[in-house]
């Protein structure tokens, strides 16, 4: 055991329950859950937050977040969050959505929440594939990437190009804060945590909609070890998506930048 002089510098956050995570070994979901929970704990908002969950691998994530929760149907989280936000104007409200959930079936709900400037935060988890249903093509699947529904590799002439969600949302006037981070290294994880904190701060300041895109892995459906999957994010996803802070609230400009 540690000696008395040693102090704890990293411990599990109160923002997560003690329920063991059900995700595959090495899955980024656990890292992203922890970042959100840590930020809410550090901001003193665990008692004042309502999360809205997706459908996909994270469909049961209310078991892990130590905050109030409303689960949504596939793609509908921003609409559900809008209802919660209008019912509880002083709460922190966030959605947790994957790329199939947000960028395919729910792109209308997501974009219109941003267009309305709805004071919610969306954490967008992009691993370029449908995880829970077994590795089908997503709107964010890269050209040439093989999935169970693009077995010969995604072809632009048949299915178009991967959609760069943070870039697209940064063009929407109601979106006040848009950032794009990753989980492929400790440095990237720490940077992503800062983005998540700024997104929640944007919401609490009443600036409007905020979105943090987080590049994530899928070791199981990519067919890679977790360590190789993190390298694959770095080498393949990062170059294909706009990274960093794309948009900060006008009132906050001139402040601390990434």
């Amino acid at each position: 055991m540690p000696e008395a002089a040693e102090k704890c510098v990293f411990k599990p956050t109160e923002g997560l329950t003690e329920k063991p995570l059900h995700y595959c070994p090495g899955c980024s979901h656990g890292i992203i859950h922890r970042l959100i929970a840590e930020v809410l704990e550090e901001m003193g908002q665990l008692d004042n937050t309502v999360g809205v969950g997706p459908v996909g691998c994270a469909a049961f994530c209310e078991q892990y977040f130590n905050v109030d929760w409303v689960a949504a149907a596939h793609g509908r989280a921003p609409a559900v969050a809008t209802g919660v936000r209008r019912a509880v104007p002083d709460a922190v409200v966030f959605t947790y959505q994957g790329d199939g959930d947000l960028a395919a079936i729910g792109i209308a709900e997501a974009m219109h929440a941003a267009i309305r400037g709805e004071k919610i935060t969306t954490i967008f988890v992009n691993n370029a594939i449908y995880g829970m249903t077994g590795g089908q093509m997503a709107p964010t699947t890269l050209i040439g990437m093989k999935t169970t529904t693009s077995p010969y590799g995604r072809k632009a002439e048949e299915t178009g190009y991967p959609v760069d969600i943070p870039k697209l949302f940064s063009e929407i006037p109601g979106a006040a804060y848009v950032a794009s981070g990753s989980t492929d290294s400790p440095k990237a994880v720490l940077q992503t945590k800062k983005y998540i904190r700024r997104a929640f701060e944007t919401q609490l300041a009443g600036h409007g909609y905020s979105l943090v895109s987080v590049l994530s892995n899928c070791p199981t459906n990519w067919g890679l070890t977790p360590v190789k999957a993190m390298e694959w994010i770095r080498e393949n996803l990062v170059p294909n998506y706009t990274m960093g802070e794309l948009k900060v609230p006008t009132a906050a400009k001139g402040g601390e930048q990434a």
Partner: peptide, 12 residues
């Protein structure tokens, strides 16, 4: 920071 299962506590 990288642990996806929040299984590590660190002392220094």
């Amino acid at each position: 920071i990288m642990c996806p299962d929040v299984a590590i506590t660190v002392y220094r």
